[in-house]
Design a protein around this nucleic acid. Structure first.
Length: 197
DNA sequence: CTTACGATTCCC
DNA sequence: GGAATCGTAAGG
């Protein structure tokens, strides 16, 4: 039987990006009829993080990061969008990038939106999962703790996970801020410097 | 205004 | 390894 899971509240996101990124593993992302389990996340620490968008300070693009935690920061890169959650307290622009989801429900619609058949390739990347779960630029600034629109629910934390280097960035590459549930299909398997937790 | 450059993805 | 292709941020 299925257990009723609580929606992740403001207090969950009002912590450091690292803690939120770790605890988001195993959580459930819900957007309409599309449901998936978080299996890969990445933490961005704020203005002092050379790889973070917030390194430029507050701009039109990064305004959500400076607001309250638990709001969606959706940005566009080339032809794709990526989904982040603002963390920490107001004025502290840390966030967590959602890098991979394991599809649980609504798979037919995900296949249709992605044009891909293989379930494991439906949401195995930050831009792919946005396409699969129909997350768009209009969701930038949406409150993810309301249970209306996209939101997160409690789930089963992985029995073990990896900490590894972040991906797709040139600065602060060696910081171990990528979190991967063990034994899941992620955007990229753990590398040589990964630590099993 | 012009230029540089991606928190990506998919294909060769 | 490289191209696609556009918004954001920096520089003049």
């Amino acid at each position: 039987m299925t257990v009723a899971r609580k929606t992740l509240l403001r207090s969950f996101f009002a912590r450091s990006p690292e803690r939120v990124a770790e605890d988001l593993l195993g959580a459930v992302f819900v957007h309409g009829r599309s449901i998936g389990t978080v299996v890969e996340t990445e933490a961005y620490l704020g203005e002092f993080d050379p790889a973070a968008h917030a390194r430029f300070g507050q701009t039109a693009r990064t305004r959500v990061l400076y607001g309250r935690p638990g709001f969606a920061y959706v940005y566009q890169t080339r032809h794709h969008v990526c989904l982040n959650v603002a963390t920490s307290v107001r004025g502290t622009p840390g966030c967590v990038l959602i890098r991979a989801l394991r599809p649980v429900r609504g798979i037919a619609a995900m296949r249709s939106r992605r044009g891909v058949d293989d379930v494991w390739r439906l949401a195995n990347g930050p831009a792919n999962l946005c396409q699969a779960f129909d997350v768009r630029l209009i969701h930038d600034g949406v409150d993810l703790t309301r249970g209306a629109g996209p939101f997160f629910r409690e789930g089963e934390p992985p029995t073990s996970f990896y900490r590894d280097e972040r991906i797709g960035i040139s600065r602060a590459r060696r910081w171990l801020l990528r979190f991967l549930s063990a034994g899941e299909a992620v955007s990229r398997p753990p590398g040589p410097r990964a630590r099993l937790i």
